[in-house]
Design a binder for these strands. Structure first.
Length: 614
RNA sequence: GCCUCGGUGGCUUAGUGGUAUAGCGGCUGACUUGUAAUCAGCAGGUCGGGGGUUCAAAUCCCCCCCGAGGCUCCA
């Protein structure tokens, strides 16, 4: 629905001649002269419904109150929209708006007549406003979710399935926070999340006002961390047997299969208007399922796995839901799909991916103490697979939150998530795997079994690490929590943008420092050659969380032994300084970063030549 | 999307109707340093944007944009 609101000194109209769609009217409606009136030119559009009426009434009342009008004239005005509703619907909706506005003298001009009008607009800032109202559509999935009943339990490693209200949470404070968060949806937070300040101060990421909210910019250090995480997770998937692919980021809304798929998801899409209406993907499912549809899948090839790093996935989350790196509108997610011949194979893969997720998060620097596990499934699934679920709990070796639905309303029968609990007690899902029993049918994906028959596979959706940005959020929040415990915050060495900083005590030792930098080639080493005091350089290195700081001067030049400050073993008060040879330092870093992706220094190596990003 | 609070040089910030503060950072110079901020000088601002009220607006009013918190949502 399109509205054009005009605050007028007076408005006069006269119905002249009927069109095909003219409604029957009495003489009083035929012509009117109104003074001090808010005229609402209205075009009812295709798809408008009761939710549109409700919003329109709210908007109109709102404006009328603000400008202090007592009189409102609803004036049908088709020219505001190229996409009009059928006339009968339009009249019906106009009448509904008319009868729903309260507290004002409401008039309505007749629909379907050629009308002459004469208006005198007041011309103050609020005297002319236009509004577009779109109907609030609720997807089938959301409607179904409302109907479904959830039951919540805690399942312990010793096999007790306890009603969540009866569980003794002592010793499991984070699980308690998570359960409260999930079930009662209680949010007791009154400050900005710590990671937002950190991501800015450490020059990792930042808001970009010129874009849509939730679309961030990443500075070199942030880009490096992201890049390493991205490579690591994709490599893990490939190692596990997945084939990396790439699919388009935008799709046609008219595509029949996709349309039915969208209706199963409560996600809000970014829409690109044009000759054909496109939407931006919110995961890699679209591209990969369309690809899989065209593949020839002999049963011997199963399970087959496709993985794609979605850069980006787009979800037009509500404005108030967006926070720092925790919840974005554009994010990077490794999305892997596993095509399985049957439920048995799917469950085997599910368990492998569960273990793999634990390993991946641990390597990233998020050990299992930092997250809580949720397992969600239909009651039927649990009844038939108790031992399987128990095994999952035993693998993680701690109690798990269980949600059971009395009916299946999503496309999956089973899923798990690892939920990070942040410094403010908020929970965010990282790794997740789902067993999908619906989309093979929807996308027409099939394989040929031993007897030559076509069959529908079971499909696993897996994000080993969850969104990459969210991993960085978790690392920053964790670092903040470390600080609160009195420890020095840090990144794992393999993710540190700068691994070693060399600080010459004075310009005299610059040459020695440069030679040392060359000897440490292969690692991310930089050199603080600024004309600053040693104290200042040390402080700056500390504020940048640099894991190894090497101060070189007369002594080092003479003995050839380095004085290395090891951050991991230091405290704020007490810096741990270790004497070692260049070779020993190299070996130490080598060992600590073994088997993880490496990368070059993302910034100029000389600090004197380095810009600041904020 | 709704409600509440906020937005002042690159960053942090003082300023409730009367010529816009300070620190950090930047630039210039001095100092050549042994483990968490060396000293001095200089430059840098359409006070988020637009409109209004007023002799006068960062300050009061309206609309919009951006951020945070809440509601909601979270594949």
């Amino acid at each position: 629905m399109r509205l054009l609101l005009v605050h007028a000194d007076h408005m006069e109209y006269e119905a002249k001649k009927k069109t095909r769609f003219a409604e029957k009217i009495d003489n009083a409606m035929k012509r009117k002269y109104l003074e001090e009136v808010l005229v609402v030119f209205t075009a009812v559009e295709d798809g408008d419904d009761d939710s549109t009426v409700e919003q329109a009434v709210r908007e109109i009342t709102d404006v009328a109150e603000k400008i202090g009008a007592e009189r409102i004239l609803l004036y049908p005005y088709a020219h505001l929209s190229p996409d009009l509703a059928p006339p009968e619907t339009a009249v019906e909706i106009l009448k509904k708006i008319e009868s729903s506005i309260e507290g004002f003298e409401v008039h309505r001009a007749p629909f379907g007549w050629y009308k002459a009008f004469n208006i005198s607009c007041k011309g103050h800032p609020l005297s002319e406003l236009s509004k577009t109202i779109t109907p609030v559509k609720e997807s089938k999935a959301l409607q179904a979710e409302k109907k479904a009943v959830s039951h919540w339990y805690i399942l312990t490693p010793d096999g007790n399935l306890v009603d969540v209200d009866k569980f003794d949470f002592s010793g499991f404070e984070n699980l308690k926070k998570f359960a409260d968060y999930e079930i009662s949806k209680s949010r007791v937070v009154d400050r900005t999340p710590p990671h937002v300040e950190l991501m800015q101060r450490l020059e990792i990421a930042d808001y970009e006002d010129a874009s849509d909210p939730g679309n961030l910019r990443y500075y070199p250090k942030g880009r490096l961390i992201k890049s390493l995480l991205e490579r690591y997770v994709v490599e893990k998937c490939v190692e596990y047997g997945a084939m990396e692919v790439e699919t388009p980021i935008m799709y046609s809304q008219q595509h029949e299969t996709l349309r039915r798929y969208l209706d199963r998801f409560p996600a809000r899409q970014y829409i690109i208007e044009g000759k054909r209406k496109l939407f931006l993907r919110f995961a890699a499912c679209f591209g990969q399922f369309l690809m899989t549809h065209d593949m020839v899948l002999p049963y011997r090839a199963l399970p087959i796995k496709l993985v794609e790093l979605t850069k980006y996935s787009f979800r037009k989350e509500q404005r108030g839901e967006l926070v720092g790196l925790r919840r974005l509108r554009a994010f990077t997610m490794p999305d892997m799909h596993t095509i399985c011949r049957d439920m048995k194979q799917a469950m085997d893969e599910f368990q492998m991916q569960y273990r793999l997720s634990m390993e991946v998060l641990d390597t990233i620097g998020i050990p299992s103490e930092s997250y809580e596990v949720a397992i969600r499934m239909t009651e039927d699934f649990y009844r038939e697979n108790r031992d399987f679920i128990q095994e999952l709990v035993n693998i993680i070796k701690k109690p798990v939150l269980i949600e059971m639905w009395d009916s299946r309303f999503f496309y999956f029968v089973l899923k798990f998530e690892f939920n990070f609990i942040d410094a403010l007690g908020k929970a965010s899902a990282l790794s997740t795997v789902q067993i999908d029993v619906e989309n093979a049918e929807r996308y027409g994906i099939s394989f040929i079994d031993e007897s030559g028959q076509e069959k529908r596979p079971v499909i696993l959706h897996c994000s080993l690490s969850g969104a990459i940005e969210r991993c960085i959020y978790a690392l920053l929040e964790k670092a903040h929590m470390d600080t609160e415990k009195g420890n020095l915050p840090s990144f794992p060495l393999w993710l540190s943008p700068i691994q070693v900083r060399i600080i010459p005590v004075s310009g005299k030792y610059l040459k020695f420092a440069e030679d040392l930098m060359k000897k440490l080639g292969g690692f991310r080493v930089d050199l603080d050659d600024r004309n600053e005091t040693l104290g200042k350089k040390i402080r700056d290195a500390g504020r940048e969380w640099i894991p190894y700081v090497v101060v070189v001067g007369e002594e080092e030049e003479r003995t050839g032994l380095l004085t290395v400050t090891v951050r991991k073993e230091s405290t704020v008060k007490n810096q741990k300084k270790v004497k070692m040879t260049v070779e020993e330092l190299k070996q130490r870093i080598q060992k600590e970063t073994e088997g993880r992706p490496s990368a070059l220094l993302p910034l100029p190596p000389y600090l004197s030549k380095r810009p600041r990003f904020r």
